[in-house]
């Protein structure tokens, strides 16, 4: 039963990710990306990681994709952008990336295939256990992540502020 659910969620995530990467219209691609992230969240639930699944929905599908959506709306891409994407995505361009990622797929597939099969432990790891471990053994990593986020905040403010002031001057 779990294996069947896993297969469905995995198939949905693969299909919607392929659709997201190959769309011409950015907003359509973002909707497919949300579906893909929700499917991966379902996989996390099935693997016994409910906290990671919740974070996947709240932060990835909620915050990060909405950030993309804001920028797509700010850039105001219209019908012209679909035409331009069609020009940029000529059929010949598919060949190189397909060969490269196909070769990598075969390599990594063989590596995973040669490992002897490990079954998952049947116990789910809940938020409490994650939190305890995170703020004891991994406290330094948490602090470093905080510093990283602060640096990103300053960088994003710096880049975005100049965009806004310049746009005001144009008007």
């Amino acid at each position: 039963m779990y294996l069947f659910l896993f297969a469905v969620a995995g198939a949905v995530s693969i299909a919607s990710t392929i659709l997201a990467v190959t769309r011409l219209n950015a907003s359509h691609a973002l909707v497919y990306l949300i579906v893909s992230l929700l499917a991966v969240a379902a996989v996390f639930f099935l693997l016994g990681a409910p906290f990671a699944a919740a974070l996947e929905i709240v932060i990835y599908a909620g915050a990060i994709v909405v950030l993309f959506l804001f920028v797509v709306m700010m850039l105001n891409l219209g019908q012209g952008s679909v035409e331009r994407e069609r020009r940029w995505l000529r059929p010949g361009m598919w060949i190189g990336p397909s060969i490269l990622s196909g070769a990598l797929f075969i390599t990594l597939f063989v590596v995973i295939y040669q490992e002897t099969g490990t079954e998952f432990m049947s116990k789910a790891v809940g938020p409490g256990e994650v939190g305890e471990r995170m703020f004891s053994a991994y406290i330094l990593a948490v602090e470093l992540a905080g510093i990283l986020l602060l640096a990103a905040l300053v960088g994003a403010y710096h880049l975005g502020r100049r965009y806004m002031t310049d746009r005001r001057e144009e008007n």
């Binding site: 990710t17 990467v21 693997l47 990622s101 295939y113 490990t118």
Partner: peptide, 25 residues
């Protein structure tokens, strides 16, 4: 949970990663 072999989840991660790489290229 016990019935999903670890390999399958890794295969799924592999395929998703390669789709992303394909998109970047």
């Amino acid at each position: 949970m016990a019935s999903i072999p670890a390999d399958y989840a890794l295969y799924l991660a592999l395929v998703l990663f390669l789709i992303g790489l394909f998109g970047v290229l």
